[in-house]
């Protein structure tokens, strides 16, 4: 029973982290039909920027709880600079091309950003333990957990609720859905589609960076952290159904649970169980769990 609970808690923690990253990926795909491989680099940029911001804050001896603000500030900074830059500077030139072409373009961007990080922050690892140390541990079912992990769960829930509210409960969200449904018709209706694209991509970029910023305290921020996260996030959104937010949440939970079970009961399969689940879901539901197939009109 105790171990089972530990599995669940690990699963939820892992799923929260995955959801934060995957939500931005699926949002961008849902609106713009771009499977953004550079998402992993934005995640890494978020982590590195958070390391710098928190380091700056701490060395100046400002009030300690401010480090949490620094995490958010880092994410927003990355998103607001990189989002419009990438969308206006590159992706805009490729709209209307095949989804695969856009995938390749964002892969190229991923390669570029990997080296940009290397040039900006060097090859040494960064540690951002302050937010982590600040909160201490809690004991659940006889096991000790860092309270910080539950902050990440909170952030994930806040993002999920916030995005659903914007998409379903606001005027702008409804207009965005119109854009998703039919770009051309929306344009003729006077909706500024190009601005929706830019804003969507920026929000997606901020979400990626939040993922990185809030993960930074739990890991050593080093080269290559974006490389693994992007394929994991792919798995999550593909399992859930590309472009579906509830799908991303479910996908994150499934992947989180699969990995947690593997870690606790069968460590040998830990690394590939995620992709195994992904392949399994694709075999039985090629569109993912939450997306509908399309029939072509002739």
């Amino acid at each position: 029973m105790q171990q089972f609970l530990a599995v669940l808690i690990d699963a939820v923690n892992y799923a929260s982290w995955l959801f934060i990253v995957a939500s931005g990926l699926t949002l961008i795909y849902g609106v713009m039909r771009i499977l953004n491989m550079a998402h992993g680099s934005l995640y890494a940029l978020g982590a590195y920027t958070a390391a710098s911001f928190v380091g700056f804050w701490s060395t100046h001896g400002y009030f300690p709880a401010g480090v949490f603000l620094m995490l958010i500030a880092a994410a927003v900074t990355v998103g607001v600079i990189m989002g419009p830059l990438i969308e206006r500077g590159l992706l805009r030139l490729l709209y209307g091309k095949d989804e695969i072409v856009l995938l390749l373009a964002t892969y190229a961007l991923f390669l570029i950003l990997e080296d940009v990080i290397k040039l900006g922050w060097g090859v040494d690892a960064y540690y951002v333990s302050q937010p982590y140390g600040l909160l201490g541990n809690v004991t659940l079912a006889g096991l000790s957990y860092p309270l910080y992990s539950f902050v990440v769960v909170g952030v994930a829930v806040a993002i999920g609720v916030g995005l659903s509210w914007v998409l379903n409960g606001t005027q702008r969200g409804k207009l965005l859905k119109a854009v998703i449904h039919d770009r051309e018709v929306s344009q003729t209706l006077g909706i500024n589609v190009s601005r929706y694209y830019m804003v969507t991509f920026t929000v997606g970029a901020i979400l990626a960076a939040i993922g990185g910023a809030f993960t930074a305290p739990q890991i050593s921020v080093s080269l290559g952290i974006g490389v693994e996260v992007i394929v994991l996030a792919f798995a999550v959104v593909v399992i859930g159904g590309l472009g579906s937010l509830p799908g991303a949440a479910l996908g994150a939970l499934i992947v989180g649970l699969a990995r947690s079970l593997a870690v606790h009961y069968w460590p040998a399969v830990e690394l590939f169980c995620v992709y195994f689940v992904m392949a399994l879901v694709l075999v039985f539901r090629p569109q993912g769990l939450f997306a509908a197939p399309e029939l072509r009109k002739i």
């Binding site: 989804e99 695969i100 995938l103 590309l242 040998a268 590939f272 992709y275 195994f276 392949a279 694709l282």
Partner: peptide
């Protein structure tokens, strides 16, 4: 399309995971 791309990615990562262990 991207389903082919991602499924092929998944299979290669399964092999990677197997080999690492």
């Amino acid at each position: 399309h991207i389903f082919f791309a991602t499924l092929s990615l998944a299979f290669s990562m399964i092999l990677y995971g197997l080999l690492v262990k």
